[in-house]
Design a protein around this nucleic acid. Sequence first.
DNA 1: CAGTATCCTCATTGATACTG
DNA 2: CAGTATCAATGAGGATACTG
Lengths: 128, 128
Amino acid sequence: MRRGELLAPECPARDILQHVTSRWGVLVLVALHDRTLRFSELRRTVGGVSERMLAQALQTLERDGFVVRKAYPVVPPHVEYSLTPMGRGVSASVQSLVDWIGAHVPAVLAAREQSDAANASAAPAARR
Amino acid sequence: MRRGELLAPECPARDILQHVTSRWGVLVLVALHDRTLRFSELRRTVGGVSERMLAQALQTLERDGFVVRKAYPVVPPHVEYSLTPMGRGVSASVQSLVDWIGAHVPAVLAAREQSDAANASAAPAARR
DNA sequence: CAGTATCCTCATTGATACTG
DNA sequence: CAGTATCAATGAGGATACTG
């Protein structure tokens, strides 16, 4: 695939990117990066996610071949989620992006203050 | 920053991640990765983006310190957008994620067919 | 436990029109 | 050219209740 092809509106990679970088998609990939988890464990691990959104994210990632769902036919139900080999591939890229951001949080926060201060002095009249 | 901290709901890195991985945010970072572009050039380069969404994505990325906006006081207006050093940092990570996905589009498409076929044979009655 | 179904709300998005 | 303003439509997201 050529480099700028993604920028075309109909590129199928845009969908995949959307799924992988979606709000809960990223966090699921991060959570499953180094361990298998059950549904309720994932729910607790990924802070703030609702059952609905978690189920949806998992289904999407499963359909794209990044996640495997393994259900044990017992009562009460027991379902485990883990990454496929392909899932570990994206997950690695996602992790390095996430790690980069993690390392630069202070820098971004500082940039925001700069920017906010500049706007405050440039248009202070807007407040009244 | 510790590794799983991102999974906490109030982690500031979640915001930044959201901005960077947002639908148009990623594509802007990709487009600006190896060249400076004007607003209208960006609009044409990033396929399918509206003026409103492009402006919003640019403002967010600028506020976070990833993009610089340089306006030339001429008529008609001339504004150039480019990445800051920090912007090139994220952009590199984003690019490698995007490249990974680009290389695996066929594999994902194949996984989807597998999955769709399995569901079709598992619950065909749902169609009538 | 692991979801699905339903309802409802608010944010995101896009089209269109207008301005410096 | 480079946006902002406004409005309407769509979809994401959450709360709750219910089921295998």
